[in-house]
Design a protein around this nucleic acid. Structure first.
Length: 431
RNA sequence: GUGAGUGUAGCUCAGUUGGUUAGAGCACUGGUCUGUGGAUCCAGGGGUCGUGGGUUCAAAUCCCAUCACUCACCCCA
C-alpha cells in the first residue's frame, strides 16, 4: 500500500494522535489569529515555494538549513531553481519589498500560518512538513517592538492554556559585535582545534559562536576550561542599551523570562534580540517557538534596509505541549440533526429538508433506506442531538424529531423544524 | 548522517520446545428487531504474519539480508 512520506502527517478530527487532530490545529491557529488581530496585525499568505535563492539568503549560508542541505529544492520546467520554504520570514520580507510596503505606515505588522518544510530525519515533535504561526513586525528598530512581539507570542501560549512556559531571552549583538566576538573565539579555540568535535571544527571558521552551545561533552569541557567570556561583554554601546531597553519593557509588561546568553539563533542575519520559548515537560524537542531581530535581511534580499523582528510558533509542538498539560481538546462541532429516510420516497425528502435547514443547523442525512432501529443507531453513532425520521408515518412535509439523549419525540412540520430545535436548545434541561 | 528499539486484521494484541486451514477484543457490515437507538446473542467481510532468501518433512516462530516504522543524537519549530 502506498503511504505518506515519512515525517509528514495527516490532520483530521479522529486522528489517534492529539497533535494531528484538525480541531486542535484549528484551535491553535484561531487563538493566535485572535491575539494578533486584536493587536492590529494583518494576515498575509505567501507561496510555500520561492526561488531557492530567496530562501537561502533568508536563512544564511552558514545556517544548518543550508550547510546540512535541509531545504527541499527542485527545478521547474523553465529551469528555475525553486525551494520549499524552511521558514517563512524570508518570503514575508521579500513580499514587503516587492509590494513597496515601506510607504505604508510603519511598522508593518503581518502574520501568517501554514506548512514549513525541512529535509531532516524526523522524530517526535520534528517533522519534514510541520506548521507554524508566524508573525513579523517590519520597519521599526524600536526595542518596544521587540518587547511587544515577545509579549504577543507569550499571550498566544497563555490563550491556549499553557502554563509551564520558559521564555529565554538572549542577544546576538550587532554584526560588528559578532565579528569581534567571533575573532575572540577563534583565537581562543584555535589552539585546541584538534580536540574539538568535527562539527565544532567546522564551526570554528564559519560560526564560532555555535561551538558554545555544542552538546558535545568534550567541547563543553574545553569551553569551560578556557573560561570563555560571554557575548554580553562584547556588545557595543547601542546593542547593550537596546538589550537593556527590551529587558526593561518586558519587565513592565510582566512577561516572565530569563536571560540566557546561550540563545544563538540558528539562522544568519539575526541581530540583537533573540529568544526561544520552551515547555518544561515535553522532553527533547522542548522549543515551542523562537524569534529574533533581523535588521540585515531585507538588504540581503536586494531591498533597502528594513529593520524587522518576528517569531515562529511550531503548531505541532504546541499541540504536544497542550496534550502534556491536559488542556481540553476542542472537538468537532456537534451534529444538530441526522435525517433518516425510511423508504425510497423519503430519500429526496431528506435531501430537501436538509437543504432547507442548512446552514442555520448542522444537518446530515442517511444515504440509504434503513429500518428505524438502524436509523437511530446511525444517528447516535454520528453524535447527533436529534434524529429526524422520514417515511410512511410522516409525509405531508412533516418529520418525526427524536431527542437521542432523552428519547422523547414529536412530529413537526418542515417549516417549524428550525424554530422548534432552536427552542429546545434554549432549554437544555427541559427534558 | 549516527545509534537503539519494534514489525501478526483498520486499532490493541495473543500465538507454547517450529506442527493441520493464523486467533481474540474493539471497530465495520448484517441478523436477532417488517416504525423506535446505545444492551445481549449470532453471523459475516477484512491478513501475501513488513519483504526476500536460507535451514527443515514442516517456519508467524530458527538463521541471514533487506525495507519500513518509532525513539534518541545533531539542530531546531
Amino acid at each position: 500500500m502506498l503511504r505518506s512520506v515519512p515525517g509528514t502527517n495527516d490532520f483530521f478530527g479522529k486522528s489517534k494522535e492529539y497533535a494531528f487532530r484538525e480541531p486542535v490545529f484549528r484551535h491553535i491557529v484561531e487563538s493566535a489569529q485572535r491575539v494578533l488581530s486584536a493587536s492590529g496585525a494583518q494576515t498575509i499568505h505567501t507561496p510555500i515555494f520561492e526561488y531557492a535563492e530567496v530562501l537561502q539568503k533568508g536563512v544564511g549560508t552558514t545556517s544548518d538549513i543550508v550547510v546540512k542541505k535541509e531545504m527541499y529544492t527542485f527545478e521547474d520546467r523553465g529551469g528555475r531553481i525553486l525551494g520549499l520554504r524552511p521558514e517563512p520570514t524570508a518570503s514575508i520580507v521579500r513580499s514587503y519589498n516587492e509590494h513597496g510596503m515601506k510607504v505604508w505606515p510603519q511598522p508593518v505588522r503581518l502574520f501568517t500560518w501554514g506548512p514549513i518544510f525541512r529535509a531532516e530525519r524526523h522524530q517526535k515533535g520534528r517533522y519534514k512538513q510541520f506548521h507554524q504561526v508566524d508573525y513579523e513586525a517590519l520597519g521599526s528598530s524600536d526595542p518596544l517592538v521587540d518587547a511587544e512581539t515577545i509579549a504577543l507570542m507569550v499571550q498566544i501560549y497563555r490563550e491556549l492554556g499553557l502554563k509551564h512556559l520558559e521564555v529565554k531571552l538572549g542577544t546576538v549583538g550587532d554584526p560588528e559585535d559578532r565579528l569581534r566576538y567571533n575573532a575572540y573565539l577563534r583565537e581562543l579555540f584555535r589552539p585546541h582545534a584538534q580536540e574539538l568535535s568535527e562539527d565544532s571544527r567546522t564551526r570554528l571558521e564559519s560560526n564560532p559562536m555555535r561551538i558554545l552551545d555544542s552538546k558535545s561533552a568534550a567541547d563543553q569541557q574545553i569551553a569551560s576550561g578556557l573560561g570563555v567570556r560571554p557575548m554580553l561583554e562584547f556588545l557595543g554601546e547601542e546593542a547593550r542599551a537596546f538589550h537593556q531597553a527590551v529587558v526593561r519593557y518586558l519587565e513592565a509588561l510582566e512577561v516572565g523570562f530569563s536571560i540566557d546568553p546561550s540563545i544563538v539563533r540558528g539562522l544568519d542575519y539575526y541581530v540583537r534580540t533573540a529568544w526561544e520559548v520552551h515547555h518544561a515537560n515535553i522532553g527533547a524537542k522542548s522549543a515551542l517557538g523562537g524569534g529574533g531581530r533581523y535588521d540585515g535581511l531585507s538588504e540581503m534580499l536586494g531591498g533597502s534596509r528594513v529593520p524587522g523582528v518576528g517569531f515562529g510558533i511550531g503548531i505541532e509542538r504546541v499541540a504536544i505541549a497542550m496534550e502534556e498539560e491536559g488542556v481540553e481538546a476542542p472537538t468537532s462541532p456537534s451534529l444538530d440533526l441526522y435525517l433518516a429516510p425510511l423508504d425510497e420516497a423519503a430519500k429526496v425528502e431528506a435531501l430537501q429538508l436538509a437543504q432547507k435547514l442548512r446552514p442555520q443547523l448542522q444537518v446530515e442525512i442517511g444515504y440509504s433506506v434503513k429500518k428505524v432501529g438502524k436509523a437511530l443507531e446511525d444517528a447516535t453513532k454520528k453524535g447527533a442531538r436529534y434524529a429526524g425520521l422520514l417515511g410512511q408515518g410522516e409525509r405531508m412535509n412533516r418529520v418525526t424529531l427524536k431527542n437521542l439523549a432523552s428519547g422523547k419525540q414529536t412530529q413537526v412540520a418542515w417549516n417549524d423544524v428550525a424554530r422548534w430545535l432552536g427552542e429546545q436548545a434554549e432549554q437544555p434541561f427541559a427534558d
